[in-house]
Amino acid sequence: MSRINDVGGVVGFPAVVQEPDEPPFHADWEAHVFALNGALIKAGVYNLDEFRDAQERMDPQAHLAASYYERWFTAITTLLAEKGVATPAELGG
């Protein structure tokens, strides 16, 4: 489906901004989200394409407003709930 992630060729986004000497992660929690995802895929809780799909299913406005690893965390918690690993209440913010 033409989802919010499918931005190739879309007109109107601004100039590309580079961050000098950018660190791999901008906060400790980002590193944890990154590693958590790898661990959950390795454990077979979900696969990489289900993970991509879960990011794409986000509300479009929330998707665009979220940072890269905020999207990852949303996808992780969405899938954990859908797969019955934890309840939304347990995963809630």
Binding site: M1, S2, D6, G8, G9, R52, D53, E56
Partner: peptide, 13 residues
């Protein structure tokens, strides 16, 4: 076509 769900054929292509 515009398949329902995740797909890897970008819209522009």
């Amino acid at each position: 076509v515009d398949p329902a769900g995740h797909t890897r054929l970008p819209r522009y292509a």
